[in-house]
Amino acid sequence: MAPTPGGGAAAPPPYPVIRPMLAVLGPLPPDHEQAAWAFEAKWDGARCIVNTPGDGTLRLVTRAGNDATATYPELSPLGEQLRGRPAVLDGEVVVLDPAGRPDFGLLQRRMGVLNPRRTARLAMELPVQLVLFDVMYLGGPLLDAPYHERRAVLEGLGLDGPNWSVPGYLAGHGRRAWDAALHGGLEGVMAKRLSSPYLPGVRSDDWVKTKYLQTLDIVIGGWTEGRGALGGLPGSVLAGVAEPAGLRFVGAVGSGLSDHERQELARYFGVIPLDRSPFVNAVELTGVHWAEPRLVAEIAFSGWTSAGRIRHPVWHRLRPDLTRLG
């Protein structure tokens, strides 16, 4: 323990350190099993564990274990609502766009900022919302309590403020939850077994995240070299979308490419090199090799950032039927 200014040891906080429970990626549970599951919206944000000793203060910890308390000063009044109740809560920090949908690109402008003057200004310009969805400690441990009991405890706390909320869940109706999430512009659905305990730091199949993915045909305007064993081969390709003003760069895609596809792309790039960017907007990447915009590919992605970039892109396949190499 660290010594206090008076020479003694610092007292441990009156709550345990709890790492967030993690979900597996998968489809919605089958219809005949859905009565045993709760369905929540999947928020496009950053995981945050809320710790309070019950004295009106709180400490925010990211999934990586970093202290984010100073980064989101607008959440500090939540500590006052929990006064007298040592607690550890689980939630997600999001920033909403003008249409009220979570925008990870906007949230990135808030993440990691520690300068007090800057965080205060950003809290006014881009206020965060804390979506609370679990409680693991409330004057005593709740880890072994089933999900539905923990949610009842959380809802009973009456936590409601300008920058935090406790959205409800839908039990037994995954398709309705899915349709509502997509209608609201959300990323997908979290399915949680009603009987599941909270397993700190464990990626458990008691929690399943189902993401909505869109597909898009992109024009490839260049590539960046892979590292290590991929040296000399494309590590990622630069994706463009054809618009009236020209080809607009929308992001880099590397996930999902097989070794065979990287070698195939390398052969194509060898015969269509270009000495300048084919994009009408800036490409803020280093080590770029430009290519004539002839190759078309299909990708999957989860949405668009406020800057017009694709979120979580995954390579699907080349589109030879749309490619112009002749």
Rank of each mutant, 00 (worst) to 15 (best):
G185L: 11
G172P: 00
V288E: 04
W178I: 09
L157H: 10
V208Y: 00
M111D: 01
L216C: 02
P16Q: 11
D55G: 01
P278E: 05
Y268H: 10
F301E: 07
A10D: 03
G221D: 11
L157Y: 09
V202I: 14
A38I: 09
R227M: 13
V283Y: 03
G235T: 02
E40Y: 02
L157P: 07
P116Y: 03
A123L: 02
G8T: 15
G7S: 05
D134H: 09
L238P: 00
T224R: 14
P27H: 04
D205V: 09
S76Y: 03
A99W: 12
R85P: 06
L75C: 04
G235A: 08
R203C: 05
S165F: 01
K211Q: 10
I299Y: 04
V237P: 04
A2C: 01
D275S: 12
N66P: 00
R267K: 15
V17P: 00
K42M: 08
D134L: 10
G251W: 03
G139A: 06
G65C: 02
P3K: 12
D44G: 11
M124T: 15
P29Y: 12
R117I: 03
P278F: 06
P30M: 10
G185Q: 12
P200M: 06
P3R: 15
L194D: 05
R109N: 11
V153P: 06
P102Q: 12
L28Q: 14
E33K: 13
A171W: 04
G26H: 09
W223E: 01
P234R: 02
D160R: 15
M1L: 09
V283S: 08
L126A: 04
V280F: 10
V219G: 06
M1V: 13
F133H: 07
Y268P: 02
G240C: 11
L75Q: 02
R176L: 15
I272T: 09
V189T: 02
L170Q: 14
A10N: 01
D206Q: 15
D55E: 09
S236E: 05
Q263C: 08
R309Q: 10
T69C: 00
S277K: 09
R121C: 05
R121Y: 02
M111C: 01
A171I: 03
A245I: 05
G270T: 08
P12F: 06
P200F: 02
V271F: 06
F104S: 02
P197G: 14
A177Y: 06
T62Q: 02
E74C: 01
I272W: 01
P14Y: 00
R121T: 12
L194I: 10
G161R: 03
R175M: 14
G54S: 07
M124F: 10
G158E: 13
T286M: 10
P200W: 03
T305Y: 05
P5Q: 07
G246S: 12
G228E: 06
R151V: 13
R276W: 08
T305P: 00
P98T: 15
D90W: 06
R83N: 01
G7W: 05
V24D: 06
